[in-house]
Design a binder for these strands. Structure first.
Lengths: 329, 329
DNA sequence: ACATTTATGTCAACCGGTTAACATACAAAA
DNA sequence: TTTTGTATGTTAACCGGTTGACATAAATGT
């Protein structure tokens, strides 16, 4: 590895001059600037960002913690986050928490030690205090960590409501809410999520004519999910309308219905959540709740960077959702 | 941020002693060690890894360049790579190249400047020389950069051959090979890929009784792919066997067939490639060529780390593939 | 009683840059 | 002619750690 002194020597100038060229500071003649750049190219010099970051106390790095990038929702999210981070000259350190408390803890420590300037939490398994004591800019994605940490979400309550409204409009009577267990993206041990609450809200007016089951998924591999869901539907053969907490789960439900020879949407209607690419490629294509993922990602990066700059940002950043009707309703 | 001098002061010991505790070197009494650790916890001290990395000339960071993490194949790959990197105490800097020459170039520079110890290339758009002059350990994933760069692949030739063998066994006559264009994961402008060659090889014995079309995809969004493929199949209504270069494309073909009311597998048979989670969740579930992605990822990390350690590694690392028969054949 | 081992400290150099302060030199402007 | 602006150099401190050399002292072993 060549270093700045090599450049200086070869260009016949002082290290200070090279540094001035590198950082566009002070007076530099065009001749010198060109000469320095030429030498840099010649000896293939690349400034050591570790050293620069150390001195500047600025790493230009963001830590991203997600449960599992392999999950379509998080892989799309990660893609957009990387896109906007890059645009703002930030790089991304990727961490899969696997929803494992100790791994998340270790990763958070690692990120701090590596002087990341902020963390985006797509995962959340630790107790709230752990995040509050972090003393680092954080943005929580679709996960309300606490009142004191900015969170980017979509209107989950409305999403749930839109789902039940549509199912009811389509004459479904026996509803089910299926949500991600440990493996899914939307792990929230309690049912008391906005999504579910919204779904309930939408059922309110016709409550007496409707029934509702809830089902938490245990498996995470899709093949197993299909099996598990087929079992569930077999046990509850009257279910004619399902709201799933993610498109993956909804797709597994579709698959389970095919196994059981239930016709979609005639015998049973299904609504997913997220509107990931997957939803257009299953059969029939999935009716789902769309979150404006790209815009949300953009704001996430923006909020994080503004916090890094020391600005105050709003804690509650909710985006509108919409229902995308496709073939499963 | 607290630093090592703060710890030393508060613990009433010298900085050297704290460093010795931190790095387990030299003689340290249990009493001192405990005291130092206690103080670290008290003042919430985290060693600055930038400073340590700088001194050690070792960043413990790996750069990963993929075309697009949102693509299921790459998101699963990324997941496994992260898993094994973490296990070996390496962290991952994630880069999406978007198959953009200048972005890939910039990212490679950025990675070098940030002192990554090696790069995993899941993407490849630059000319070979660019990678050779890198002077950094590289492993290419499923992409033969050059004879001088270790590559981890699966037996693409066999994969292609297995595909045509099965289609022929199932009495298909009019075959098609559909491969990813600019948006897909397997962009290789030329048809002269092992996969395609293997497919041809499998057709050899019955060449006179078979026909073959090739189709390059132009779109990248699944919705557009479906449309494009429906058009293609409509133009070529006799096609009864399709081999796709990825499961995503295969899934889009399934969808196109539904649109055109072609029965799968009766009217037309489809084989995908990769065996990603997606393949079990489409209808009918996809027959596909399985690559042992997890094992391949593990070896990728292993090869990279061994290069980092200065060991020589084998350039050609091909894994066996197998065909997984599901509902589309 | 003396040699070793253990435990800690002081000091300075180093990793690869950045930067402030100050000095010098030459050119153009007032 | 004096001032000012431009261009570069020298030196040293600094970012936050690590490490080797060397010194000192107490505890332990023989």
């Amino acid at each position: 590895m060549t270093k700045i002194t090599d450049v200086a020597q070869k260009a016949g100038v002082s290290v200070t001059t090279v540094s001035r060229v590198l950082n566009n500071r002070g007076y530099i003649s065009d001749a010198t600037r060109d000469k320095v750049y030429k030498v840099m190219k010649e000896i293939n010099y690349q400034p050591n960002e570790l050293a620069r970051s150390l001195f500047r106390r600025k790493s230009n790095t963001i830590g991203l913690i997600v449960p599992n990038v392999a999950h379509p929702f998080f892989s799309e999210l990660t893609y957009y986050l990387e896109h906007y981070a890059y645009k703002e000259q930030y790089k991304l350190l990727l961490c899969n928490s696997n929803r494992d408390v100790s791994k998340e803890k270790e990763y958070i420590e690692l990120l701090k030690q590596n002087q990341v300037e902020g963390i985006i939490m797509g995962s959340q398994v630790l107790e709230v205090e752990n995040y509050l004591n972090l003393n680092l800019p954080i943005v929580a994605f679709d996960r309300a960590l606490s009142k004191n940490i900015p969170v980017v979400t979509s209107d989950n309550f409305l999403g749930g409501k839109l789902a039940s409204n549509l199912l009811i409009k389509k004459k479904c009577k026996d509803l089910a809410y299926v949500y991600g267990g440990i493996g899914g993206p939307h792990h929230t041990a309690l049912l008391a999520t906005d999504r579910y609450q919204g779904f309930l809200e939408g059922m309110k007016t016709r409550k007496d004519q409707l029934s509702l089951q809830t089902k938490e998924m245990n498996s995470s591999k899709t093949a197993n999910m299909v099996e598990e869901l087929a079992g569930f539907l077999e046990m509850n053969p009257t279910i004619d309308g399902v709201f799933a907490s993610s498109d993956i789960i909804a797709s597994a439900i579709i698959q389970a219905c095919h196994l059981l020879k239930k016709a979609i949407p005639n015998d049973i209607k299904i609504i997913g959540y997220d509107n990931v690419e997957l939803s257009t490629i299953v059969t029939p294509p999935l009716t789902t709740i769309n979150q404006p993922l790209e815009k949300m990602s953009e704001l996430t990066i923006d909020l994080l960077i503004r916090q890094i700059k020391g600005e105050k940002v709003s804690f509650d950043n909710s985006f509108p959702v919409s229902i995308v009707e496709r073939g499963t309703t």
